[in-house]
Design a protein around this nucleic acid. Structure first.
Lengths: 214, 214
DNA sequence: CTCTCCACTGACCGACCAGTCAGTCGGCGT
DNA sequence: ACGCCGACTGACTGGTCGGTCAGTGGAGAG
C-alpha cells in the first residue's frame, strides 16, 4: 500500500467516523482503528484532527463549485436551473457522509471553523442573490427582496439534504429536482412558458459535452 | 439573592456563554465566571453541564409550541398562517441566543442530544405535513408531495432564523412574515382571494383572547 | 454569645485524549 | 550480508475540564 492509498484510507475512515459520531465524539483512536493503522501513522499524513475534517469539507465544496454552472439568461432558464439543482443533488447525495457533516455541524465548533462554513454559504448566497437580481431585471424572477429569496432557497435545499443525510427518508433524485423547481417556480420564478422546455434540457446537455453534428 | 434568582442568573449566564462559544467550547468555568459564583454553586442548581443546555432548549421549544395555533380551515387561512409565522418569528427573535444554539448545533453533539432536537423537528414537520394534506383535500394547498413541501418550508424558516441569529442581517419582523407568506403562497398555497383577508387578522385576534360583546 | 444550618466556595481529583517520539521492521541498494 | 532509510508503531505525556467535597462565613434562633 503506497502513500497516496494510505492517505485515502485514512480520509475515508475519518469521513465515516465523523459522520457517525460527529466531530467532537470522533476520536483519533477511532479513526486509526477504522483505518487499521497505529495512531502515529495518522500524524504522518495529517498535522492534526481538524485538518482532516477541513480537507473533507473542502473536497465537497470544490465538487459543488465545479458542478454549478452560471445561468445564461439568453438560453432556456428552466433547463439550466434544473440542471444546477440536479448537479447539486447528485454531488451531495453521492457523498452522504460528508454532506451530513456539512449540514449538521454548521456552527457550534470553534469560531475559526464556523467562519469557514459560514463564508462558504455566504458565497453561495451572494451568487444566487446576484442571479436573482439579474433575473428580476429580465423579468424572470418575481418582485421582492432577492436576499430573502436566496435565504429561503438555500434553507429549503439544506433541509432536504439534511433529511437525506440523516436517512430519515430516501427519495428518488428526480423527484427532488422536480419538486424543488416547482416550488421555486411558483414561488418566484417566471419562466418562459410552454414550447421551449423540452428543447432546453437538450441544449444544456450539449453545452456540457458539446455534440458535433454535420 | 434568593434561590430562584440565582438559578435564573446561572441560566442567563449559561445561555450567553453557549451562544457565543458553542456548546463544547463553553466551559463550566466560563459560565460560573459570567454568573459571578464559584464552580460548586453551579452544581447546587444543575446536575451537570448538559442539563442546563437542555433546559434552555426545552424552554424555547415550549414557547414555540404555545405560540403556534392549529389552523382551522373553516376560517380565514391566510390570516391564521400569517399569525403563526408572526408568532414563530416573535418567539425566536426575542431570544436570539437560544435560537442560535437551536439552529446551529443541530446534530454533531452526542447522539442522545441530536435525537432530542431531531424529534422536535420531526414533530413540527408531521404537524405541518398533516395541515398540508388536509389543505390539499380542501383545495387550499397545491398538488404535490406534502412531505416535501413541509421540508422546504421548515428549511426556509430555519435558514432565516439562523441568519438572524448569526446577526448577519437584522430585518424588520413584518418583512419576514410578508415575504415568507408570499413565498409559500405562490409556492403552494391557494388561499381564498380578496375580501376575507382584512377581517381575518381580527378573527384570529378574537380567538386568542375571546371578546365578549352584547 | 454560641450553636446550627446551609448557601456558597475553590482547591483538588481523575478521566480523557490530542499529539509525541524513541524504537521496530522490512525492503532495497551496494 | 550488511547497513541505511523511512514507513510504521503504540506507550507515554501534558494539558484540559467536568465534577467533588471538606471547609467557610454569616444569618438567625435560642
Amino acid at each position: 500500500m503506497d502513500k497516496t492509498e494510505r492517505r485515502l484510507e485514512l480520509l475515508r475512515a475519518a469521513r465515516d467516523v465523523f459522520a457517525t459520531k460527529g466531530y467532537h465524539d470522533a476520536k483519533i483512536d477511532d479513526i486509526v482503528a477504522a483505518a487499521k493503522v497505529a495512531k502515529g501513522t495518522f500524524y504522518l499524513y495529517f498535522p492534526d484532527k481538524r485538518s482532516v475534517f477541513e480537507e473533507l469539507v473542502d473536497g465537497l465544496f470544490a465538487k459543488l463549485g465545479a458542478a454549478i454552472l452560471q445561468v445564461d439568461p439568453a438560453e432556456d432558464v428552466e433547463a439550466q436551473v434544473k440542471h444546477n439543482i440536479r448537479a447539486i443533488v447528485a454531488v451531495l447525495l453521492d457523498d452522504p457522509a460528508v454532506t451530513q457533516m456539512l449540514m449538521s455541524f454548521a456552527a457550534g465548533l470553534d469560531p475559526a471553523f464556523a467562519k469557514k462554513i459560514g463564508s462558504f454559504y455566504e458565497g453561495v448566497k451572494r451568487l444566487l442573490e446576484e442571479s436573482l437580481t439579474e433575473g428580476q431585471r429580465l423579468g424572470i424572477v418575481a418582485e421582492g427582496d432577492p436576499d430573502l429569496y436566496a435565504t429561503f432557497t438555500i434553507g429549503a435545499l439544506k433541509e432536504i439534504f439534511l433529511e437525506s443525510a440523516l436517512a430519515r427518508r430516501v427519495r428518488p433524485r428526480e423527484e427532488i429536482v422536480t419538486a424543488l423547481f416547482g416550488f421555486l417556480e411558483r414561488g418566484y420564478l417566471r419562466v418562459l412558458p410552454g414550447e421551449a422546455r423540452a428543447l432546453g434540457e437538450e441544449r444544456v446537455a450539449k453545452r456540457r459535452r458539446p455534440v458535433r453534428r454535420s
